[in-house]
Design a protein around this nucleic acid. Sequence first.
DNA 1: TATTATTACTACCTTTAGATAGTATATTAT
DNA 2: ATAATATACTATCTAAAGGTAGTAATAATA
Lengths: 137, 137
Amino acid sequence: MHFSKTAEYAIRVLSYLHRHHETSHSVNVLHQELDLPYKYLTKLMTELAKKGLVNASRGREGGLSLARSADTIYLCDILEAIGESLEHERCILGFDKCDALNPCALHDQWVKPKEMIETMLTTTTLASLIQNKETKL
Amino acid sequence: MHFSKTAEYAIRVLSYLHRHHETSHSVNVLHQELDLPYKYLTKLMTELAKKGLVNASRGREGGLSLARSADTIYLCDILEAIGESLEHERCILGFDKCDALNPCALHDQWVKPKEMIETMLTTTTLASLIQNKETKL
DNA sequence: TATTATTACTACCTTTAGATAGTATATTAT
DNA sequence: ATAATATACTATCTAAAGGTAGTAATAATA
Ligand code: SF4
Ligand code: SF4
């Protein structure tokens, strides 16, 4: 019951870019500041650029910055961008097409936590994460 | 954001054993009834036997059955038995020692869903899953 | 234009979860 | 005893996630 490392990395990096949005940042800086594996991060950032979440510019003075306003970027958008959208996630007992009329044995117990997670992911924006600048990233 | 297949399998198998607790069942039967990979299941059941969740007896008329009363087996016990206890799970941003005083950027948003999941896992017993025998397994 | 700092691309390596194969061992009905 | 039916054990394979390495392309600046 956990998020993937890739999801953690993406959320942390994008939060960092928002917190320091006055300028752009190279992968190398993000790597050092957030202690994430450098090469893995380049791949991830390339992907996030393709998906339109960040702007990437090469060459001297290049680097990465948010492509959209942070209050329009929801956590589910980030998961979507790395291929872990809510729909692609299998549920607790792994059945595909199930609903309240054809539930698995765990459905009643799982439905509430599941809704809370989905609500959190669909209503939390990057901007709302950064209100307290003291929190870890 | 999902459970492991192993966790799914364990929950489903144990639920089946409880639902049909009048007798014991061979791995082969469980494999056929629940459509789980046979050899993988033998390993899993051996593990669950070692951890004291099921009784395994070899030979003709042997098979598997619950070792404890179903109302003493909580979902977290099952996860524990397969090495996925709550403590071993990294949290949403993957920090180790964090608390309300030294939180990550997502802590405030994550703390409620997290509690709901933990509550569900620590209060739901196998027995409580089976009240409606019509649900899928 | 040459240099330097950056992202982009391609290929490969490592670890882990999941799954498979074959054999040994135990139990019991006959 | 023997045959049949189970679990237990050991070794291996596969696929996916995570991570590394080297090089090409791009852009600013000196
Ligand atoms: S908990 Fe509900 S949604 Fe999830 S697999 Fe079971 S029936 Fe389907
Ligand atoms: S959400 Fe809370 S418990 Fe989880 S990593 Fe962040 S600070 Fe730690």
